[in-house]
């Protein structure tokens, strides 16, 4: 280093200039709760269970999502559709109980990929909050989307 460089002051002034320039730049931060950043289309948030066009549950409780789940967050119990329940469940078998432990879930999206019936999807909802751990075990009430027919 020559004498001018060893004085450091020119370099310090240059550095100060750079930080000063950054004051007038567009902010990189987003004021989160009020403002939300645009998610990428493949964002993996909390799950939903889908229904078909007639409002019937698509899930047949095949268990492929639970098998695919590396965090073992998915539990289900299958049941057989009774006569007269055809408007509720699309196929002869359905999930009587379907639970996802959101504390275990790592949001990898493997369940979504494994599902042969296009029943489970991941949404853009994220960061759930609760006072108790058991509140993070989402059952069918939390996961199933509302019946499109019932809304209309």
């Amino acid at each position: 280093m020559n004498f001018w460089e060893r004085m450091y002051l020119p370099a310090i002034i240059k550095g100060l200039g750079i930080t000063f320039k950054h004051l007038f730049r567009k902010k990189a931060t987003v004021r989160f709760p009020e403002e939300k950043r645009q998610f990428s289309p493949v964002f993996r948030g909390l799950h939903i269970l889908n229904r078909d066009e007639e409002g019937r549950e698509r899930c047949t409780a095949c268990g492929l999502c639970a098998v695919a789940c590396p965090a073992e967050a998915i539990t289900m119990e299958a049941a057989e559709r009774k006569p007269g329940e055809e408007h509720l469940y699309r196929e002869e078998k359905y999930a009587a109980r379907y639970e996802i432990n959101m504390l275990r879930c790592i949001f990898c999206g493997f369940c979504e990929e494994a599902c042969p019936k296009e029943a489970i999807y991941m949404t853009e909802t994220f960061a759930p909050a609760n006072y108790q751990r058991k509140g993070f075990i989402y059952g069918k009430d939390d996961l199933l989307i509302p019946d499109p027919k019932a809304k209309a």
Binding site: I12, G15, L16, I18, T19, F20
Partner: peptide, 8 residues
């Protein structure tokens, strides 16, 4: 003071 803190 703050400016220098951000810089150096």
């Amino acid at each position: 003071f703050m400016w220098v803190r951000w810089t150096l």
